[in-house]
Write a protein that binds this DNA or RNA. Structure first.
Lengths: 245, 245
DNA sequence: TCTTTAATCCCATAAAATGAGATTTTTATT
DNA sequence: AATAAAAATCTCATTTTATGGGATTAAAGA
């Protein structure tokens, strides 16, 4: 199935650095014939994934916005978490992120903030490194044995680099520790100068589906404060998990 | 190009009513063979447009969220309009909508609100009827002659239903009136019990690209109030247009 | 209204998609 | 940890569609 992938690969051209492309630029970059490229563009434009603004070339189209609206409007996780997160950031001045697990990806899907002091580099639509940062580790710690083994086989070097262990058994021990603690804290691992505390979120079948985190602009804090914040984050994540049963 | 469209048509299954589908449900609904459907689903899942949650079937995938983030992060219209709209709703208690024109579609791409008194039924990702409501009429009034003629040929009945005129010349006169006034007001045309006042937004080449509107929970208001609000909306829309030059 | 640019259509040939069923992977259960 | 069940992928002869080069049409610009 080569042709379908080729067509969808056109969409990979559009990123934060290059949100607009002229036909000639795409033609030069992709190496498809003019006819084929116009044909792909027509299909993607008719379906709403791309659009043309006269004199400006091609951009991502309205269907993307509509589909994302649909996700926001129908995802029970976002619906349930929103008020909880809103309350969480009223209590502690920081940024709360809601992340969803998609297979081997952890993606931010909602954020609430109560501070102008710093801006999280993460917001809805931004993927997190899977092996770093509290929000991801809170999810990774609950991967099934099968999925963790598979991931380790594919990326064993990155596990060591992330400090999670040099062998699979070591990694399992590290993640078991996180599971038993019920929350995880990282400092400056993903974003300099901040501390993130995260706890896992489960669906009605007790499967790991995401994490709730709170990010604060502090690189060190007294143990009592850390414990109090962690207890609140865990408390909130449990409310969310229970609401999804 | 039948096969590409067939594959993309799978995505049309997912809507607000049915955000999740099992393989068997899709198979029954679409009429493709099992092999073909699995193959389409693999391509769409690998590209991130769909995802599977074990035991729950298929849903829209992370790529949609990421692409929408990209649009939000790179669209100069949103970037420029956000602070202006924030200030607008601080002055008048209502909901301000930013709409973008995509060919023959007007889509909400950003909203700011300062009231809990009512919720707009429109927000980012919701399309507006093209021939009704202030936000759309503010755009329609600036369609090129060619585009308006083409649209009229396709939907002449809807123009009459919308009260814009029974013939193309009449429609042109109506829209000319809106253009010359610089703003347009509608009451209860799209949403009952509210009044919308909208003004057009142009890009650097003076082409119509969208509209800015303010929606208020009032079905009638004194003429002076209406004029003052319209003047503010026009003022804000001009700031946005100038910022895009 | 006319000219230029962008986009679509045509058609013989080449390539890929298809569907039925075998096989492998992943999840769920014990 | 092992096994069974469910989900997903692979195989291959046949069928269908995609391709590319250039002709033609549509849309934008002057």
């Amino acid at each position: 199935m080569l042709s379908h992938e080729r067509m969808l690969s056109v969409l990979d051209l559009f990123d934060l650095e290059r949100p607009e492309w002229s036909f000639d630029e795409m033609h030069a970059q992709l190496g498809f014939s003019r006819s084929t490229l116009y044909r792909y563009l027509k299909t993607l434009t008719d379906a709403g994934f791309l659009t043309t603004f006269p004199g400006r070339g091609y951009s991502l189209g309205p269907r993307v916005i509509e589909l994302d609206y649909q996700i926001v409007a129908t995802d029970p996780l976002i619906h349930v978490a929103r008020p909880v997160m809103n309350e969480l950031v009223l209590g502690y001045s920081g940024v709360s992120l809601l992340c969803r697990r998609y297979k081997q990806k952890v993606l931010c899907i909602h954020q609430e903030t109560s501070t102008d002091q710093f801006r999280s580099t993460y917001e809805r639509g931004r993927a997190r490194p899977l092996l770093q940062g509290a929000a991801s580790l809170a999810v990774l710690a609950h991967f099934s044995t099968y999925q963790l083994t598979k991931l380790y086989d594919e990326q064993s070097g990155e596990f060591a680099l992330a400090g999670l262990g040099d062998t699979l058994p070591e990694v399992r021990e590290t993640l078991k520790g996180i599971r038993q603690r019920g929350w995880v804290k990282t400092t400056g691992q993903v974003t300099k100068g901040v501390t993130g505390i995260a706890a896992p979120i489960f669906d009605g079948k007790k499967e790991i589906i995401g994490s709730l985190s709170l990010t604060l602009p502090e690189t060190s804090m007294p143990a009592e404060r850390e414990e109090a914040i962690a207890e609140r984050v865990v408390f909130c994540s449990r409310i969310i998990s229970k609401s999804l049963e």
